[in-house]
Design a protein around this nucleic acid. Structure first.
Lengths: 109, 109
DNA sequence: TATTAATACCTTGTATAACCTAGTACTGTA
DNA sequence: TACAGTACTAGGTTATACAAGGTATTAATA
């Protein structure tokens, strides 16, 4: 059995949630997000992140603001919209449900 | 944003893990598994489960034994192999890692 | 003995859609 | 001009999960 594949399948669909959790703290731009996720042991590359952020923006859960940078071109800082906060709370519920499912199976309840 | 889709994406890849957890208790046949997962709020249908069990068997993590039934045709009871138990412990680790990743992001550690 | 119902097993084809690879292009700075 | 830091995209790969249909065995009944 290819456990690495199993792991990557497990992570599937978590990225959206993780990014929304991050942006619930404060606005971040792409490199920030990659860095923060890396610190939490979630490796993500640009080619993954940009389309995902665009998708979330088109879904209405994110918006962005341009901000000047002291070293280089301006950056897009993404923020969670009101709709995003609402979606996030539903994602929280979904995550809790998933955790509880696993625990139920583990404990034979 | 379609939260239902997000939920189903989150669940992706969890089925393998859940089934291996179940079979770590004792042998089950297909209808048992569907029933047990249902009790844990994980709805699965036959068309999903059969190919999955076959895949896990071909991967060497499961094997099966035929058992007579008192009411109907014989059943295939699936059991976890030694290799399966080893894979399961790695899946446990992967799950714990995922949980910890989410918690790290939530707690801004 | 034939027929039907119930239970079990299984396969094919498709939707989904996430994710990654491998680039391009623009902007500011040295 | 060269370089580094941004932003972005087209195209391909991959695998899960499901819907829908088919086969085989047993039990019950006419």
């Amino acid at each position: 059995m290819n456990v690495d594949n199993a792991k990557s399948q497990m992570r599937k669909g978590m990225l959206d949630y993780c990014i929304m959790l991050l942006l619930n703290e404060k606005p971040y731009y792409t490199s920030d997000i990659i860095q923060r996720l890396k610190e939490a042991n979630l490796l993500v590359v640009e080619g993954t992140l940009y389309p995902l952020l665009t998708r979330l923006k088109n879904d209405g859960v994110l918006s962005y603001e341009w901000q000047e940078s002291t070293q280089g071109p301006p950056r897009k800082y993404y923020v969670l919209t009101d709709e995003g906060r609402e979606a996030l709370s539903q994602m929280d519920a979904a995550w809790n449900e998933l955790e509880s499912t696993i625990h139920m199976i583990k404990l034979r309840v």
